[in-house]
Design a protein around this nucleic acid. Sequence first.
DNA 1: GTTTTCGTGATACGAACGTACCACGTTGGT
DNA 2: ACCAACGTGGTACGTTCGTATCACGAAAAC
Lengths: 204, 204
Amino acid sequence: MPKRVDHDERRAEIGRALVRVAARRGLHAVGMRDVAAEAGISLRLVQYYFRTKENLLLHGLQQLTEEFGERVTARVRSAGENPGPRAVVEALLTTALPTDEESRAFHLVLTSYALLAVTDEALAAQPYLQRPDAAEDAVTGLLEQAREAGLLAPDTDARTEAITLLALAAGLGTSVLTGQRTPDSATEVLRHQLNRIFRRTQSS
Amino acid sequence: MPKRVDHDERRAEIGRALVRVAARRGLHAVGMRDVAAEAGISLRLVQYYFRTKENLLLHGLQQLTEEFGERVTARVRSAGENPGPRAVVEALLTTALPTDEESRAFHLVLTSYALLAVTDEALAAQPYLQRPDAAEDAVTGLLEQAREAGLLAPDTDARTEAITLLALAAGLGTSVLTGQRTPDSATEVLRHQLNRIFRRTQSS
DNA sequence: GTTTTCGTGATACGAACGTACCACGTTGGT
DNA sequence: ACCAACGTGGTACGTTCGTATCACGAAAAC
């Protein structure tokens, strides 16, 4: 029954299976046989579409970061037609918080990758982890824009505040992952910090 | 040549070897043979002092958290004889930043443990990761104390600020680990946030 | 219509891992 | 002085993992 098959779609499907099993048992414990079983296919096919395990892991990381970008833009877009800088920044930051079960799995695996890249040079060479400062630049730009519009104190250091917000969101995210904090609590803390920076807000 | 040996000291030595190899190759890649080689002993001895690998990992975590506590108190103590709340809080928070190579290894392994505990129930059951809110209570107390002393704005929400500071320090720490930020940059951002909370500082 | 390529299954292999077992010298108890 | 417990070495076993190999049916190419 071998019909012609879309390799990219197949790879994406296997990649999703990889993320699911990684979220359940930990990225370190993921084997090719587990991924195959999760995807409902044979081990041979996982080998066929990704020749080696390293390839599989690399593709999983790429897929995950791309999905993350899509999540951010989707969330920003859902902030309204003509959202203010505050709404955009808030949408951007709250994407980093694991709220439902899906995003929880998502962030667990992505954080595992980031930590893995510290000791694995093949992973560290991936461009997806090399250029994570795009978010920093984006938030910095939004804050400068808000400052020009008079929404921020005039002496605000946009970049420092951007770095602070991003690191805070990341830290809150992991604390939610490890069960030290509830998603609601983390969101509230993040909002509190935003309220401080944005002296006046214009809407949701 | 088997003289009577201090089991606890032996275990601590093996634990240090475990941390070293975990920092070099990743916690997931640590095997008992690696630990034995790093400690300069035979595999059999690692088995002898820790019957199972799970025991070894659990002990490594315990040792690491204890060492972390000692680091914090040592750093706080080095803040001066009669330090103000600001100095104490700063000492506490900067302990979470990987500055030199040793603390870098330290934080990498500890973060790996925390992430591992999300999917490993045996690790999650350990009390060292169950009660990490002690730091939150401590910082909250210090901030309240500072507020009473007039060092903070009277309407400061001590607990929210404490949570913010700790999550920020954790986030900055991991960003330093992954090479996204330099230790100096992270320290500066942390100080900036402290300067905001403490409107006036009294020294060091 | 034949031939080649593609998708898939089953299985085997070598390495590494955690663990268990056996043996032996040394030390402390009595 | 003898005996039991301790510390240590060497090694083997069973499992699991990533990878490679063989085989085969179906579709596409010509």
